[in-house]
Amino acid sequence: MSASRLEAPEKKARWNLWLGVGTLVFCVLCFTVWFPNDIRGGIIERTISGRIAPGDSFFPVILAGLMMPLGLLLTLGHFRRGPDNAGEPTGEITGANIFFLVQFLLLTFVGLFFMSNTGPALVWAWNGLGLGVISSYRAVSTTFPINVAGFFLGGMVITCGFVFMTRHRLRWRDVLICLLTVLFLILVFNGLLEDVSLPPNRNL
């Protein structure tokens, strides 16, 4: 116990170094790759009226320029005082944190996958079973209930999935609460409000 306590601040303090170096790398990338390729205007330009004015790069360059000394300070602060107690107090990001982030994003994307594809899948099945001819999901994307099928399924996946993550189990009561929430969102955004569309109906 005591050993790990001694170790913790040293590990954490390293984050000032990572952040400092990360900032410097980011700034260098900004100046060499991002800004030159992604901003048309210069730092100081001559406008059409023949006058000098700050261009579109002016502000980004100043900001990245200000970030550099801060990154440098964080980095130097680490080395000056040795690894034990360098720089500002800091938290840390562990491998477990990253693993969690990946889990989180995966589960969210699975939910979004269901949101986007359930509707088109239903249309495909409908046509395949010979129940009728629908030209595309887009054609029925304002027709209830097929327009909310994707949101319903995806929403259930996201809510139930995360409840399972936090509770390590899923009771029928939890599923019911998720169901009611999803239905409530459908009622509000699809039923009561005009000119708004639930996912995926705005991106077809």
Binding site: T108, F151, G155, I158, T159, C160, G161, F162, V163, M165, T166, R167, D174, I177, C178, T181, V182, L185, F189, V196, S197, L198, P199, P200, R202, N203
Partner: peptide, 24 residues
């Protein structure tokens, strides 16, 4: 229980962002 509220808030936030700020 917070462990049920948080997932619900996640869905509400994602939906609100989609609906109000240009979809995906």
């Amino acid at each position: 229980p917070k462990d049920i509220v948080m997932p619900l808030i996640l869905l509400v936030s994602l939906t609100a962002a989609y609906v109000q700020d240009g979809g995906y």
